[in-house]
Computed example of a mutant assay.
Amino acid sequence: MSNFSKEDIRAAVAAGVLNEQQAVGLLTLAQERLGIRDHLMDEDEPFEFFKGFSEIFVTVGLWLLLSGVIGLGAVLKGGVGIGVLGMVLTWVFALYFTKKRRMNLPSMSLAAGFGVFLAGTVLSIFAMGDELTGYHVIIMAGIGMVGMLIYYRAFKLPFTMFVFGIFGLIMVYAIMGMQGAKFSIFDFPDGLFDLGNNSGFAIGSLIFGFAAFALGIWFDTKDPHRISRYSATGFWLHILAAPAIVNTIALTLVNSGGTQGYLLTALLLFVVTILSLVIDRRSFLTAGIGYFALLIPWMTPQYASGETGMVFTLLILGALITALGTWWVQIRSWLMRLLPDFPFKDRFPPYIRGQND
C-alpha cells in the first residue's frame, strides 16, 4: 500500500465509491499480504476536526446565522416557531455541507445546532401549558435521543452520537433528580462524581458511563481496522464514557482518604491503562491524568513539597504520558499477546502480523 493509503480508502467510502464492507475487505486483503503491524498508519486512532481554514470560516458564519435565529426567537417570543425554523435550517444546511461537501467542522456544528433547536422546541411546547418539571425534561431528552438517531441515519455523521449521548446524560440526571438527588454547581466535581458525597448523581454518571462505553465498544467491534464511520462514532461515545466512569470511581476512592484510598486509586488507574490499551482508545487514560498527578506526590513524599513537588510531578507525568504515546502500538502488541483469549479479542484493532477478521 505504498501508493494507496487508508486515507484514500476513507475518501472512497465517503464519496460512495466503496461501501464500508468493501473497504474493510480491501484493507484486510492488503494487510494480510504486507503484514498488518508493519503497515498500520502512524495515527492508528484517526480523528479530524477540520480539513482547512475554509471549514472554520464556514462554521463561524453558521454560528452567527444560527445565533441570529435564536435571537430572533427571543425578540419575537416565538420559541416553538423559531425552534422549528432552526431545525429546518440546520437540516437543509446539512444536506449541503455534510452530504455534498463533507465538511467536518460545519457538519458537527449543524448536528449540535439541530439538537439545541430540537430541545428548545420541545421545552417551548411544554412551557406553553405549565411550568417545566422533571418529567418534561425526561421527555425532551427522550425525544432528543430519537431525533439524533434519525439525524445519524440520515447523514451518517459520527459526531451525532455525541449529541445523542448528551441527551442521554440529561435524561439520567433528570431521573436521578426526581429520585431526590440534589446537585449544586458549587459542589462540582464532588457533587457530580463522588459516590459518597451525592450518590444519586454519581450513580447516574456511572450508569450513563457504562451504557456509553458498551455502545462505543459495539461500534468499535464493527470496524476493527478503523477506517469507517463506525470507529469515529465509537470515538465520540468513549469521549463521553471515559470521564463519567473514571472520574466517578477515582474521585470516590481518592476522597475516601488514607493509604487504602490511594492504593485503590492506583489499582484503578492501572486497570484503566490496561483497558485503554486493549480497546486501543486513549480517552480513558486521558480522563485519568489528573489522578495520576495526585498519586505521584503520594508515592514520592520526599519530593512532594512546594514548587519542587509540582515540577517533579510534571516531569514524571509528562515522561509517563509521552512514553505511552510514543510506544503505544508496541506496548499494546505485547499486552494483547500476553492476555489470554477473551470474547471479541479478535474484533479489536489488529496487534500481530497477519492477523485478520
Rank of each mutant, 00 (worst) to 15 (best):
A242E: 00
L335W: 06
V13T: 04
I274F: 11
L317A: 13
A287K: 08
G200P: 07
L149C: 02
L237V: 03
R282D: 11
F57G: 08
Y151V: 03
L253H: 09
P349K: 12
K100S: 09
L26C: 05
R33L: 14
G354C: 04
K222F: 00
G144A: 05
L72K: 09
I139V: 15
G78N: 14
L40K: 11
N104T: 07
S205T: 08
G61N: 07
V75P: 00
A141K: 05
L315T: 08
F284D: 02
T59P: 09
P243D: 01
A181T: 07
D130L: 02
F117P: 06
P343E: 08
P301R: 10
Y151P: 06
M336T: 04
A304K: 09
L263Q: 13
V17W: 09
G79V: 00
L251C: 04
L268R: 08
I249Y: 01
A141M: 02
H136D: 15
G147Q: 01
G25I: 00
D357Q: 14
A74Q: 14
G200T: 04
G83Y: 04
L192E: 04
V272A: 12
T28F: 02
G257T: 04
L72I: 04
F167Y: 12
G120F: 01
E20L: 01
L123N: 05
L157S: 01
G354M: 03
D346S: 14
I36K: 12
V246H: 05
M108Y: 12
P106L: 04
D341N: 14
D357W: 07
A174M: 06
F47V: 07
A293G: 08
V60L: 14
F270Y: 10
S109E: 07
Q330V: 05
A111E: 03
Y351V: 06
V80T: 14
E20R: 13
L118N: 06
L268P: 05
T133V: 06
